[in-house]
Simulated assay, not measured.
Amino acid sequence: MRMLHTMLRVGNLERSIAFYTEVLGMRLLRRHDYPDGKFTLAFVGYQDETDGAVIELTHNWGVEQYELGNAYGHIALEVADAKKACDDIRARGGKVVREAGPMKHGSTVIAFVEDPDGYKVELIEHGTHGR
């Protein structure tokens, strides 16, 4: 078995694709409309789906907003330099909600950004966390 993707429901597909591709630097891997079901799926990631896990953005036509609830945590991305990543993301219009710095009760350097729908994305600095 292997991890394929994580699915997020989004209120504005174009805005979400722009965030994940233009702000976080992922590629749009594929996109398909399902008119009979009134939804569109778009897959974004840093590598092809055959090589690693990606994010599935699901847009249900006519739904512009979702309740995120309190069970969802975040998506985590490894970055070379968390402070620089925050600066770059902010410069591209992204929203940094926790600046880079050590996590509470540890030494792992992390930061958090938020996508257009309010989903959190954690940035973890390479070499500062245990596996």
Rank of each mutant, 00 (worst) to 15 (best):
M1H: 13
M1W: 08
M1L: 11
R2D: 05
M3R: 04
M3C: 11
L4A: 14
L4P: 00
T6E: 02
M7S: 13
M7P: 00
M7Q: 11
L8H: 09
R9H: 12
G11S: 08
G11V: 08
N12S: 12
L13D: 04
L13G: 04
E14C: 03
E14Y: 03
R15L: 11
R15K: 15
S16M: 04
Y20K: 12
Y20D: 11
T21S: 04
T21P: 02
T21M: 05
E22G: 02
L24A: 09
M26K: 07
R27A: 07
L28S: 03
L28D: 03
H32I: 07
H32W: 06
D33F: 06
Y34D: 03
G37S: 05
K38S: 15
K38G: 08
T40P: 00
L41I: 12
A42D: 07
A42P: 04
V44I: 14
Q47A: 15
T50A: 15
D51E: 14
A53D: 03
I55Q: 08
I55L: 15
I55V: 15
L57C: 06
T58I: 03
H59P: 03
N60R: 12
N60P: 01
W61D: 10
W61P: 01
G62K: 08
G62F: 04
V63S: 02
E64C: 02
Q65E: 13
L68T: 11
G69C: 07
A71G: 13
Y72L: 15
H74E: 05
H74V: 02
I75F: 11
I75E: 02
I75P: 00
I75M: 08
L77T: 05
L77D: 04
E78F: 04
E78D: 02
V79H: 02
D81I: 09
A82R: 05
A82K: 06
K83D: 13
K83V: 05
K84H: 09
K84F: 01
K84I: 11
A85R: 02
C86L: 09
C86R: 05
D87E: 15
I89T: 06
I89V: 13
A91W: 01
A91N: 12
R92Q: 15
G93S: 08
G94T: 12
V96K: 03
R98L: 14
E99F: 04
E99S: 13
A100G: 07
G101L: 10
P102S: 14
P102G: 13
G106F: 12
S107M: 09
S107L: 08
V109N: 10
A111D: 10
V113W: 05
D117T: 06
G118Q: 06
Y119V: 08
Y119Q: 07
K120L: 15
K120D: 04
V121E: 05
E122R: 10
E122G: 08
L123Y: 11
L123N: 07
L123C: 10
L123Q: 07
E125K: 07
